Measured scan of single mutants.
Amino acid sequence: EFSMMFKHFDKDKSGRLNHQEFKSCLRSLGYDLPMVEEGEPDPEFEAILDTVDPNRDGHVSLQEYMAFMISRE
């Protein structure tokens, strides 16, 4: 189920989600993330990124995504 969600939000089929795609994916899974303006701080989402994209390369791989989802179950 999680990998299907990942593929759905991987719009460019790159095998990874940019942070915006990842945020959309989390919202569709029921995460209550506040709407913030582009460039505004988003501490809740930043905290999630610290876990799922610790190297802050700007992308979430399928492996990082799956590890995050399994840790939340």
Rank of each mutant, 00 (worst) to 15 (best):
N18L: 05
E44Q: 11
M66Q: 09
M66C: 08
M4V: 10
D10N: 05
I70S: 04
D53S: 03
K11N: 11
E37V: 11
Y65Q: 02
H59A: 10
E38G: 11
K23R: 15
E44A: 13
R72P: 06
P34R: 11
N18R: 06
L62P: 03
I48S: 00
H19S: 02
E64K: 15
H8Y: 10
S71T: 07
L62T: 04
P34A: 12
E64H: 08
L17M: 05
D53V: 01
E40L: 10
C25M: 08
P41Y: 11
E73V: 08
P41L: 13
G39L: 07
L49E: 00
M4T: 15
V36N: 10
S24P: 15
Y31S: 04
R72D: 05
E46I: 01
D42N: 10
F68E: 02
E64P: 06
L26Y: 03
T51R: 14
M69S: 05
L26G: 00
R27L: 13
M66N: 10
S14T: 07
L33F: 12
L17W: 00
S28M: 10
N55V: 07
G58V: 00
A67I: 06
R56H: 06
V52N: 01
E73Q: 11
L49V: 04
D10H: 04
E37K: 15
P54T: 06
R56G: 06
V36M: 11
R72Q: 15
H19T: 04
M66P: 02
N18Y: 08
G30F: 02
E1A: 05
Y31F: 15
M35E: 15
G30C: 05
D42F: 04
I48F: 04
N55F: 06
E21G: 10
L26H: 00
R27P: 01
V36Y: 12
F2M: 09
G39P: 06
M69N: 07
L26E: 01
F2S: 07
Y65F: 15
H59W: 14
Q63R: 12
E73D: 15
M4A: 05
A67F: 06
F45E: 01
F22R: 01
G39F: 07
P34H: 08
M35W: 11
P54K: 13
E37F: 06
N55T: 13
M69C: 13
F68N: 05
E40P: 07
N55P: 05
E73M: 10
I48D: 01
L29Q: 14
L17A: 00
